[in-house]
């Protein structure tokens, strides 16, 4: 049995600088971005007054995300819905890329930490914008000033926990699927060793993949954008 579980492979170096590696994750992320771009262009070509077919689908998706933003963040937050939609789509397709023989973009802490840092910046920006700089700093002294270090920690924990959650779910699924493939190979060699192919590897990993890839991908994309909305909405109403 040879099971290999590696991080994303380094494909090359930017400008030949060993400090700027181009990894598999980055290549896949660009493929996913180009795919989403072409999907958007395809869905919105030749728009008509009365939507039908692909245009109706696109409009339905936009309305759904708008409604989600409205119901979670309260009215007057429509400006966030493009960002939420971007997060949702890049997370969903980035994770589902694993169905197309690519390493999932989100099974790399760099990707999810990047997104979580954008969200963290949004949260802090909105807290300062709506509560004022004084209110933001005063929030660290709640309920008593002794709690300040803990409050700073809990503030830092937000992006860490968001990124680790997404990364851990996807990477965990990847590891379990890989281990399962190895185990099934051993099992089919032991039980059905007279066959030339590892028969048990057919079909069974698909069932696992349905949960670890499809379900988790949809779930984590939804949760990541949902948490972003909840945190930013909370920051806006804190002032």
């Amino acid at each position: 049995m040879n099971v290999e579980i590696n991080g994303p492979q380094v494909l090359g170096y930017l400008f030949g600088n060993p400090n700027l590696p181009i990894t598999e994750t980055m290549r896949n992320a660009w493929i996913v971005m180009v795919f989403i771009l072409f999907l958007c262009i395809f869905l919105t070509r030749r728009m008509e007054k009365i939507p039908k077919g692909k245009q109706a689908f696109a409009e339905k998706a936009v309305i759904m995300i708008d409604n989600l933003v409205d119901s979670t963040m309260g009215p007057g937050c429509r400006a966030f819905s493009p960002y939420i939609a971007t997060l949702l789509m890049s997370s969903l397709f980035g994770s589902l890329a694993t169905l197309f023989w690519m390493r999932p973009v989100t099974a790399d802490l760099n990707t999810t930490l990047g997104w979580a840092l954008i969200t963290f910046f949004l949260i802090t920006f909105n807290k300062i914008k709506y509560g004022g700089l004084g209110g933001y700093l005063k929030g660290f002294l709640e309920p008593v000033f002794v709690m300040a270090p803990l409050n700073v920690l809990s503030e830092v924990a937000t992006p860490v926990s968001m990124s680790f959650r997404h990364f851990g779910n996807m990477a965990g699924g990847l590891v379990i699927s890989t281990l399962m493939m190895g185990a099934l190979e051993v099992l089919s060699n032991a039980v059905l060793g007279f066959l030339p192919v590892p028969l048990l590897q057919i079909g069974i990993p698909g069932v696992l993949s349905l949960y670890f890839d499809c379900f988790t991908a949809c779930m984590q994309a939804f949760i990541f954008s949902m948490l972003t909305m909840a945190y930013v909405g909370d920051a806006r109403s804190s002032g």
């Binding site: 926990s161 680790f164 959650r165 851990g168 779910n169 949760i223 949902m226 948490l227």
Partner: peptide, 17 residues
């Protein structure tokens, strides 16, 4: 519920990481 479950899951995910 899904949001709460996701929050509760983070401790398990930390362990996994």
């Amino acid at each position: 519920m899904i949001l709460g479950i996701a929050m509760a899951e983070s401790t398990g995910i930390y362990a996994l990481v």
